[in-house]
Design a protein around this nucleic acid. Sequence first.
DNA 1: CGTTAACCGAGACGGTACGTCCCGTCTTTTC
DNA 2: GAAAAGACGGGACGTACCGTCTCGGTTAACG
Lengths: 195, 195, 195, 195
Amino acid sequence: MTPPAHARRNEKSREAIIAAAFELCAERGFAATTIEAIAARAGVGKQTIYRWWGSKAEVLIEGVRIHRDASAGFPDTGDIRADMATQTGNVMRLFHTEFGAIWRGLIAAAQTEEAAAEGVRRILRVSIDEGVARLERARELGQLRAGLDPELAIELLYGPIYHTWLLRTRPVDEHYMTEVLAALGPALFTEPTAG
Amino acid sequence: MTPPAHARRNEKSREAIIAAAFELCAERGFAATTIEAIAARAGVGKQTIYRWWGSKAEVLIEGVRIHRDASAGFPDTGDIRADMATQTGNVMRLFHTEFGAIWRGLIAAAQTEEAAAEGVRRILRVSIDEGVARLERARELGQLRAGLDPELAIELLYGPIYHTWLLRTRPVDEHYMTEVLAALGPALFTEPTAG
Amino acid sequence: MTPPAHARRNEKSREAIIAAAFELCAERGFAATTIEAIAARAGVGKQTIYRWWGSKAEVLIEGVRIHRDASAGFPDTGDIRADMATQTGNVMRLFHTEFGAIWRGLIAAAQTEEAAAEGVRRILRVSIDEGVARLERARELGQLRAGLDPELAIELLYGPIYHTWLLRTRPVDEHYMTEVLAALGPALFTEPTAG
Amino acid sequence: MTPPAHARRNEKSREAIIAAAFELCAERGFAATTIEAIAARAGVGKQTIYRWWGSKAEVLIEGVRIHRDASAGFPDTGDIRADMATQTGNVMRLFHTEFGAIWRGLIAAAQTEEAAAEGVRRILRVSIDEGVARLERARELGQLRAGLDPELAIELLYGPIYHTWLLRTRPVDEHYMTEVLAALGPALFTEPTAG
DNA sequence: CGTTAACCGAGACGGTACGTCCCGTCTTTTC
DNA sequence: GAAAAGACGGGACGTACCGTCTCGGTTAACG
């Protein structure tokens, strides 16, 4: 999404733009954030944004990627059920922060704008791969239901999360993930061996 | 979303506006569809749109509702697994038509605009309730796993559909729903009684 | 230059735009006057300017035309030499006011922009015709050199005025027009009959 | 307008810039010619233009000066009326070439920009002085009306030329200068001696 | 004869204005 | 009195250039 790193590029401007975009999304939401406002807040000419990114979505995606790279990966305590609960809980919590609002905006943009879709996909790919890797380790310990495709398993898990978060068909309380995991248990995991 | 039906209201305009909105979304996509273009296409003053709806999303939601009311409900052949496969297959097929593009746009709008979110929610509510009703009938036949909340079950099923459709993390082939249902089977259903 | 008078047109905006354009030209000069600034000063959307005029030059030309229509015509005391001195003196004085700066800008614009050239031409046409009419009256009194084309005579007179004013090859003192008229006398007029 | 010749200055760039400026003015007109385009066409950095000139007008003025220095001066056949006709005819012809379009642009720029005005003035000064010198020679031969200021005479002559050329109040045919000279004759010259 | 300072091409940068597109409101006229 | 038509004030769009500012790379004068 970003043209290949350019020697002459001003790193300070790049950072200021991403930071301004995040601030403005936090303050007034994704839809009300404009390139003009980002440029003004960052103390930058509009052209400098258009030179390196194709839309506000691409700016934010670069910011999200940086944010994501700096955050913890999938937990691995050896207990796959517990780790899944931890991870999905983290995700749901994240979704209710400012970051969630930005991510929501990006997913909306991705419905319309191919570049945004590509960025969203790339970000999700990493998370999915982490989840798949964790499931592979669980499989080696015999914790996974036989014949289960790990990537499909991740979708079974994240699907309901995104469904309730994006479509808001019902209020989500803090036990939601517990219920989802409990219900999905028989589809995903072998019975935990007794204590 | 629509003000209470008004005696004086011009029914022809109402229909022309909704039809124009659908056409334009089909031709140029949700994001590129504007109120001005809808009004021009419908041969209507802009004010007439603003008088009765709050945004293009609301116009489309009314159209989607009409469309939905005219379509078949949840199938019920007695075989819950087969009916689920039929229904989810229908949904996925629908998502790849022009209607899908509109629905995609409305979900995007719902991330930002409360009125759209409300409309989306109301439309989904009906579909979910139909699914829940179908599952209740299955439960009476002992086809459902004990202790399963039917609404949660619907989310376990539709979650992955929306996840792959909205986030496009991977190409979806025609067997996708078969695999999802197979994987979810142990979580949702009792073993089908032999022959 | 202006589209045919339109019933729906907002007269207040039209006047505010012309007034704002004049003010801004007076304050910062023709070149530094922008459509954006005119719109802002007039409390008007830019589109409202672009809807009715093609450029700032056309706005100003409309203003100049109104200004010109409201001003006195060619003097006629019976003494053609004196009237010419009065008139050319008035013109030169006018050229050193704010109005002169605007007229200067419009002539500059006319070098580049056909619509401005057309406007300038139309404004000048009226003044030239007035001069021609005055000379025709002088001819009837036998004050004009035989065989002189009155329109050419006007050009012989105004030519040096515009030459010094636009090209500024030398400072112009208040006697300049006296000298020009004295020098042109033999070319234009018959000897005044001794009195 | 040009800083004092500098030893290090790249002569090739200087020439390329002036040539590019002339080409671009010829192709798209003075107003549409930009410093960026000149730099690109000349294969030169923008800074190299800004280092040596203050504006595109100054670049063109330097080019015009070179052009002018290379062209013939005022003719002198001994017959002042004929020489004036020759010279003014040459000028009017020149005004209808590409060079005329550039000169027109510079005069327009001079209305707004002091440096351009200064350049225009300097170029005109030389031509006026040549004309004045020619008239002085005519005076010695008794061809000039007594008491006529030669510089004023030049303005009486060039005034109408610039008036019609810049203000375009009427189409100018090839006899225009003949008529102007014929009409001005009594103001400028003594009667040609018979035979 | 190596150093060094200016010039050079290139082009990113902070800006300003452009002319356009729509927004949602308002006004006029018609049915 | 709803509806068509569309002008209006406004805000953002994405683009074009402005004039300034690095950045390496020549290149010519000086030490």
